[in-house]
Design a protein around this nucleic acid. Sequence first.
DNA 1: CGCAGTTTTGATGGACCTCAAAGACCGTGG
DNA 2: CCACGGTCTTTGAGGTCCATCAAAACTGCG
Lengths: 267, 267
Amino acid sequence: MTNARPTLIRIKQDTSLVEKIMNELRFNTRDCGSCPIRHRAVCARCQPDELEQLDAIKYYRTFEAGQPVIWSGDPMEFVSSVVSGIATLSQTMEDGRTQMVGLLLPSDFIGRPGRDAAPFDVVAVTDLTLCCFRKKPFEDMMEKTPSIGTRLLQMTLDELDSAREWMLVLGRKTAREKIASLLAILARRDASLYKKPPHDGMSFELPLTRESMADYLGLTLETVSRQVSALKKSGVIELQGKRRVIIPDLQALVAETGDDVDGAPIT
Amino acid sequence: MTNARPTLIRIKQDTSLVEKIMNELRFNTRDCGSCPIRHRAVCARCQPDELEQLDAIKYYRTFEAGQPVIWSGDPMEFVSSVVSGIATLSQTMEDGRTQMVGLLLPSDFIGRPGRDAAPFDVVAVTDLTLCCFRKKPFEDMMEKTPSIGTRLLQMTLDELDSAREWMLVLGRKTAREKIASLLAILARRDASLYKKPPHDGMSFELPLTRESMADYLGLTLETVSRQVSALKKSGVIELQGKRRVIIPDLQALVAETGDDVDGAPIT
DNA sequence: CGCAGTTTTGATGGACCTCAAAGACCGTGG
DNA sequence: CCACGGTCTTTGAGGTCCATCAAAACTGCG
C-alpha cells in the first residue's frame, strides 16, 4: 500500500546475489568449521573427527524459489539440513485443499533415517541451500556415532512439541489470533537468527505469500488479507511495502495471539 | 438412543475389575518378558541383559479414569510407557478453550529425556497403568544403551508424522470428515491392538466422551453429536449403546474422511 | 425417585468461505 | 516512456458451516 521504492528493492536483489555467490564459495570449501548452522544442526554435537567423516560424505544442493525438493511418497535418497533459505512441508488432499505442516528454516533437518518414502511435500519458498547426505551412509554413520542420534532425537522432540502447539492454533484459535501467532513466531525466529532477543520496533521480512500463510493457518487467502489489514488498522503491526513487517509493541502482538503472556515458545 | 442394557455394562465392569487384578499380579512380577507392550514400547529393541537393567529401575503406577497424570509446566520426575488404558495429551488456553494434541495408547511413551518441565497436560481417560522410570537413571541408561535411544527416535519420528497428519484434519477438514477420520484411526488402532487387520463389520469401544472428541477435533460437543448422528443415519456407522461403534463397511468410512483410498496411515 | 453428568435436539447468529472484480506490483516488449 | 500481461493482494457481497445459547432426553447412581 505504501510501496514506491523500486530502487531499494533492486539493491536488495543485488546483495542477495552477492550473498549467493559468497555462499557457493564458502560452502564448497567443505569446511564444517565455518558452517553457519554448525551449532544448531544435526551435527551440533559431533567431535572434530566425526565432523571429518561427515565432511567426506556431504554435498550441497541448491533449489530456486518455488522449486520442489521432494514429493510425498517419493523415495528419499538423501537426508539433509537446511543451510540457508526457507522451505515448507505440506500435505494436499485430492480436491486440492492443502495444509502446511512445517516451516523449514536454517539448521532444520529434512528426512527420516529408517524410512524410504517421504511423508510430505517439501518445497523451496526462497532460494534454498541444503547440506545433503546420502541416506545409507548417513544411517551407517548414525549407528556408529551416538552424538548424531542423540542430537536428532533432541531436534525431533522439539519439533514434535512445536507441531503440537501448532495444533492448538489450528484447532481453537480465531483467524485474527492465528495471524498474530504466525507473526509472533516469525518475529521470534528472525530475532534468534540474528542472535538477539525480539524487541519493540523490530522488523522482519515476511517470506510467505498470503496463500502460503493461509495454507499454514488453515484459512483462505482472503481471510488472511483481511485480518492482516485489521491488525494493521489496530496498530498492532505496521507494513513497509507488502513484505516487511514492523512490530511496534511486542506485548501487544502477543496479546493478540491469545497465549499466556509468558508465551508459548513455539520455535 | 438405543441403550437399555445396564446388565451388559455391569458385566463389562466386572471383567475389567478382574483384568485389573490380574494385571496387578502379572505386572508386579517384574517380568518384562511377559509384558504386553514389550514388542512395541521404548524397550522393544533391548537385549536380555539390558532388559534386566531396566527391570531393576522400573516401577508401576496406576491412575483412575479422570485423574491427571501430570500438568503442563510441572517438573517431570519420571518418564513412562503406557501399559494399559488410555490417556490424553492436551493444552488449554486461559479462557478455557482446549485442544487435545495426542492420544496415548498402550506402548506409547510419556516424557522427554533432557527436559525438566512437562509441555502438556496428561490425563487418564480410562483406568491407566504406566511403567515408570525415574528420569535421571533412565537418561543415564540411555547414554549407555543405544538400542533405547534408537527406538525412542523411531517412535518420536512416527509421532511427529502423526501429529502433522492431524494438522491436516484440524486445519482443512469439515466436521463430518473430522469425525470419520477419528473413527477410522480408532478402528485401526483397536484392530492393531488385537493384531488383526481392520475388517468390515468390526466394532470397537469408543473411549472418549463427546466433549473429548470435540477437544481432539477442534469442534464443539454439539457438532460432534450431530455429525455422529448424521454418520449413523447415512449407515456409515452403527452404534450399540452409546459407546460401541460398528463399522459395516470400512471403505465407506474411509471415503468419508476425505483421504486417499490407500489411506494415510495415521497410527 | 431424584439428582448430576452426558448426550441429543432445536433455533439463531456470526465467523469465515466462496465467488467476483478491481487494484498493486513487476517484468517484458514496443 | 508507456502499454501490456501475469502474479499477488485487496475489497466487496452473499452464503454456509459451525458455534452459541437453550432446553429436553437419557444414563447411571445414591
